[in-house]
Simulated assay, not measured.
Amino acid sequence: MTKKNAIFFSCNERFLFTLCVALLSLKEHNAKLLQNTDVLIYQQGFSEEDKAFVNQILPCKFTEYKFAVETDFNNINFKHFTQLTFARYEIFDLLDTYAKVLYIDVDVMIGGDLSYIFDHFGSKGGVAMCKDTQKGLTLITKNFVKPLPQYDMTVPCYNAGVTLFCDNIPHRQELRMWCYHKTAEWLDNLVCPDQGVVNVMLQQFHVPIEVLPDICNCLPSNPKYLDKDRHDVLIYHCAGGGVRFWTYTYNAPWQKYYQQYLALGGRPHTDKEHAWLKLIKKHNWQRFDFFERSPDPQMHPMRFLKYVLAWPFKYVRRKLSK
């Protein structure tokens, strides 16, 4: 019997709203894919009402998650990231059931058909990720307080926020518990905890990495992230927290899905919005093309200046292309 594929999210009740946005955008762009692809949600703190609410959007399979080994759960990495960031380790065993599992962080918006990822990646080495360019740091040392002398710290870092795992990964049966034990062992030395462990795992077990194009995990450091002229981005990912869709600036595509979530009866988020976003919404400036996806001038003054200078040319080009 041919194994199905799956899409994997992990979430607590705090981020239920952005999980729902991710699912609404997934549903809009992936009707055919979802006919034969399970949606798996590993969760903590969901009520039965929360699960029923999510299932209004898409039928999902829920699993209550628990970190697999004893460790210091008061460590800053568990406070900042929560246990759920490590739920991706469970995917190695899920590959007994599924051929390919696409892990996606919940702070995303899906912009296209994810069949491209399933169809074109994973057959060579079993793992596919995009290179990580956040904050101008590109090597795996960014994931650790101090380098690990037993590993090569000069190799590229891959962003774990979107990862394709396939059932042909070498040494797959060993990987789940290896990742858990190394997380506990290195806990005080980890900065981007799950990402650091997964990147080192690639070295330890000689797992060939396939590099996804940046449209599969478009990060805020990527010029495509706020570019209204791009229509090829498959996954927008507001990694890092500072430029979240719901707090940074007005993002019309994300707001569309968020309004759908609220219309279904979802609870509004309570995160503090940037002054820039508050100003745009207060004066309804989002109706003007300039303000939609405009960088926050207080947080990113040079990015805003570049936007101001380039906007007239891009605006005219968009008008002429219609």
Rank of each mutant, 00 (worst) to 15 (best):
G196W: 00
V191N: 06
D214T: 13
L23V: 06
F86T: 04
Y250M: 03
V101P: 06
W186D: 00
C11P: 04
Q173R: 06
R317P: 01
C60Q: 14
F121I: 14
T133A: 13
A239L: 02
Q260R: 15
R293P: 02
T82W: 08
R230F: 02
C130L: 11
H206M: 04
P213D: 01
L16N: 09
D167K: 09
H120M: 09
A52R: 15
Y307A: 07
L34E: 02
Y250F: 10
L175N: 06
T2C: 05
K314E: 00
W178M: 01
W254Y: 15
Q203A: 08
V233D: 07
L114C: 14
I169V: 11
F144T: 11
Y307V: 04
D296G: 02
H231N: 13
K61P: 11
A99G: 08
N75Y: 13
P170M: 01
A160D: 03
N12A: 06
M302F: 07
G240C: 10
W254H: 15
C20W: 01
W285D: 02
L279G: 01
Q203V: 03
P312N: 00
N74S: 15
T270F: 12
L277D: 02
S115L: 10
L234D: 11
K272V: 07
E174K: 10
V308A: 11
R293L: 10
L190T: 05
T18D: 14
W186Q: 07
Y103V: 13
N5H: 07
M1S: 05
G240L: 10
Q260C: 11
R230Y: 02
P193N: 02
H80K: 15
F205Q: 01
P253F: 02
L279A: 09
A6N: 08
K281D: 01
I76M: 15
P149H: 10
D50A: 15
K3W: 11
K319P: 07
L234R: 08
P208A: 00
L277C: 01
F121P: 07
C238W: 03
D188F: 08
H274T: 07
A184K: 01
N159G: 05
M109D: 02
S115Y: 10
H181Y: 07
F8H: 12
V54G: 00
F313H: 03
R172D: 01
F205H: 06
L33T: 07
L137K: 10
F118L: 04
N284T: 01
G241T: 09
E210T: 05
F313K: 08
L95H: 12
V21R: 14
F67H: 13
A68T: 12
K135D: 11
V198W: 00
Q195N: 05
R318H: 13
L187W: 03
G242A: 10
I117T: 12
F17S: 02
L137I: 09
H300V: 05
G266F: 01
K319L: 14
C179S: 04
D50S: 15
F205G: 05
M153T: 03
H283S: 00
K278T: 12
R244S: 10
Y261C: 12
T63N: 02
E70Y: 10
V54T: 05
K322A: 10
T63H: 06
D232L: 04
M177A: 06
Q134L: 14
C20E: 03
K306H: 09
F288Q: 04
